[in-house]
Nucleic acid binder design. Structure first.
Lengths: 246, 246
DNA sequence: GTCAGTCAACTTGTATACAACCGCTACCGC
DNA sequence: GCGGTAGCGGTTGTATACAAGTTGACTGAC
């Protein structure tokens, strides 16, 4: 495995732990590493590596790795090490597509509800362009946008759908974090969210679904090129590091 | 934990193993136990219980339990044991609802494909009521039905959607297995599948979606009452066992 | 009889030890 | 020079040992 800078180990020597905090810390550290591209798709590593690097035993490392495996971030080959799963553009596209399916279903469901869920009011207050109070800026918008979509799905009232959608959101977050430094589609986001909410308020599911689809596709497009770019850069950096290791 | 009959341990004393077969065996044994209601929702047990019962160490047991936990079958409380998750009727309903959402989206996608996927031909051959060759009977129909729906979603070409759908199918299988002994809706299944395939062949997504929805709802209804019944019976048996333990 | 406090058994979380197995390299025969 | 094979380092899979926390029952006072 390429020698990434040692993770800041926040609990060196701290033996007593609550819950399975060690496993959780390993999980969080690895996931952050993947999200911030210190761990590059294709990187190989062993359980022992991670364990000594984070100063824990292999047991919590294994638990964390199995979680990540189930989430599709890493993979293991029998007695021959782990690796970060190669980046899969098609998978990203498919996840966005799935989001569209789920969220369209959600707005239809919302319109079929007998009484509109309270959360719509709150979303109106945050997002409606006529709203006079302060607007969020920069990457905050992205976080709020994520929240918007999750709230929308949750409002439809199917908890399993909400759970699945959350899982997808999690996996896409890693990609979306890539363009943190960019000026985000702030105005567009406000406009589009406003349109969706208006359509919902008017009980026009078709319109809401169309606006929603458009919004997600726009967001996807915004993310797509920067993703390509970053992945490329990360892959090159990775190759350089590997060359340096020899 | 109530004393369920000892699982048949197929590999007592067999030390050398390939893959993590011990973990897989534990997983399979537990899942079967849950599916067949030897492990009743609410049952409490410890890792040590399972380990000694299946003659393995706690390590593979833990791995299996964490898998089941992620799938929503069991839950753990910190240093205080595991339990089979209480049966959640609402969850079942929600999963069926989610199936409808995903499968409707799938048929729409299929109709938008430039060339119809080859699997449709195969499904026609199996399911079309005019088809002269042999029909499946009894519980085989249920297995084939499951396959039908998975194939349909797979044909839409979104692998992530296929994966999620498969996960849902897995979780519903436990419920569907409940009415193994019943005469299944054989004729209805053939008719309804035939209608869906016809609509797809005619490239009528709306029609296909409607027929599909109707079919899933019928299946759900068929399962609903028997589920109630069995759960009731299982819960009573469980109470009796508990009373007997004292 | 009831309630609070204590304690011991039990449970999970983590660390460590050991065994089986994969992949690679170096060596040997040709 | 080349092919095949044996051996070795490294990796995961499993077992076991130990630590920390929870639960529930028992005991004692009131």
């Amino acid at each position: 495995m390429s020698k990434a800078p040692r993770q800041p180990d926040s609990k060196a020597g701290a033996k007593p732990r609550r819950k399975n905090s060690a496993a959780n810390e390993v999980y969080a550290a690895l996931k952050e590493g993947i999200a911030e591209f210190r761990l590059i798709p294709g990187d190989k590593f062993s359980e022992g590596d991670i364990a000594s690097r984070l100063a824990v035993s292999r047991t919590p490392v294994r638990e964390a790795l199995y979680r990540l495996q189930r989430e599709g971030h890493v993979d293991v080959r029998f007695r021959s090490g782990w690796q970060i799963k190669p980046f899969d553009f098609r998978q990203i596209e498919e996840l966005y597509d799935l989001r569209i399916t789920l969220e369209r279903a959600a707005v239809h469901k919302i319109c079929r509800l007998t009484s509109p869920p309270a959360v719509l009011q709150q979303l109106q207050a945050i997002w409606h362009p006529d709203h006079p109070s302060e607007r969020a800026i920069g990457s905050t918008v992205r976080v709020l946008d994520e929240r918007f979509h999750c709230d929308l799905v949750a409002a439809a009232g199917n908890r399993e759908m909400t759970r699945i959608h959350l899982e997808i959101t999690e996996r896409l977050r890693i990609v979306r974090r890539l363009d943190f430094t960019r000026p985000y589609r702030v105005d567009a986001t406000y406009t589009e969210h406003g349109e969706i909410l208006d359509a919902l308020a008017d009980n026009q599911p078709q319109m809401a679904a169309e606006k929603l689809t458009h919004h997600i596709l726009a967001s996807q497009a915004s993310v797509r090129d920067i993703t390509m770019e970053k992945i490329q850069a990360a892959a090159e950096a990775h190759q350089q590091r590997q060359a340096l290791d020899e």
